[in-house]
Simulated assay, not measured.
Amino acid sequence: MNTTTFRIDGMHCDGCADRIRTLLGKEPGVREARVSFAEGAAAVRFNPHSVSEARLREVIETGGFNVVEMTA
Results as ranks from 00 to 15, higher is better:
residue 1 M to V: 00
residue 1 M to D: 08
residue 3 T to I: 09
residue 3 T to K: 07
residue 4 T to Y: 03
residue 4 T to S: 01
residue 5 T to W: 05
residue 6 F to N: 11
residue 6 F to W: 12
residue 7 R to F: 11
residue 7 R to D: 02
residue 8 I to N: 02
residue 9 D to L: 06
residue 10 G to R: 07
residue 10 G to C: 07
residue 10 G to I: 08
residue 10 G to V: 00
residue 10 G to M: 00
residue 10 G to K: 05
residue 11 M to G: 08
residue 11 M to E: 05
residue 11 M to K: 10
residue 12 H to K: 09
residue 12 H to D: 00
residue 12 H to T: 11
residue 14 D to H: 01
residue 15 G to W: 06
residue 15 G to F: 01
residue 15 G to C: 07
residue 16 C to R: 14
residue 18 D to F: 12
residue 19 R to D: 02
residue 19 R to W: 01
residue 21 R to E: 15
residue 22 T to D: 09
residue 22 T to M: 07
residue 22 T to H: 11
residue 23 L to I: 04
residue 23 L to Q: 07
residue 25 G to R: 02
residue 25 G to W: 05
residue 25 G to V: 05
residue 27 E to S: 08
residue 28 P to T: 07
residue 28 P to S: 03
residue 28 P to K: 02
residue 29 G to L: 04
residue 31 R to A: 02
residue 32 E to Y: 10
residue 33 A to N: 00
residue 33 A to S: 08
residue 34 R to I: 03
residue 34 R to Y: 06
residue 34 R to D: 02
residue 34 R to P: 04
residue 34 R to C: 05
residue 35 V to H: 06
residue 37 F to L: 03
residue 38 A to Q: 14
residue 38 A to F: 12
residue 38 A to M: 13
residue 39 E to N: 14
residue 39 E to Q: 15
residue 40 G to M: 04
residue 40 G to K: 08
residue 40 G to W: 08
residue 40 G to P: 02
residue 40 G to H: 10
residue 41 A to S: 09
residue 42 A to I: 12
residue 43 A to E: 15
residue 43 A to N: 14
residue 43 A to I: 13
residue 45 R to Q: 06
residue 45 R to A: 07
residue 45 R to F: 03
residue 47 N to W: 11
residue 47 N to C: 14
residue 47 N to F: 12
residue 48 P to D: 15
residue 48 P to Y: 15
residue 48 P to S: 12
residue 48 P to Q: 12
residue 49 H to N: 03
residue 50 S to R: 15
residue 50 S to I: 13
residue 51 V to Y: 12
residue 51 V to D: 04
residue 52 S to K: 12
residue 53 E to W: 02
residue 54 A to V: 14
residue 56 L to M: 12
residue 56 L to T: 12
residue 57 R to M: 03
residue 57 R to K: 11
residue 58 E to A: 05
residue 58 E to Y: 04
residue 58 E to D: 01
residue 60 I to Y: 13
residue 60 I to N: 13
residue 61 E to Y: 09
residue 61 E to H: 03
residue 62 T to Q: 07
residue 62 T to M: 06
residue 63 G to D: 01
residue 64 G to W: 00
residue 64 G to K: 05
residue 64 G to V: 02
residue 65 F to Y: 02
residue 66 N to E: 12
residue 67 V to W: 07
residue 67 V to N: 07
residue 67 V to R: 03
residue 67 V to D: 06
residue 67 V to L: 05
residue 68 V to R: 15
residue 69 E to Q: 14
residue 69 E to F: 08
residue 69 E to H: 09
residue 70 M to D: 10
residue 70 M to G: 13
residue 70 M to C: 13
residue 70 M to P: 07
residue 70 M to H: 10
residue 70 M to A: 14
residue 71 T to D: 05
residue 71 T to S: 04
residue 71 T to G: 02
residue 71 T to E: 00
residue 72 A to P: 12
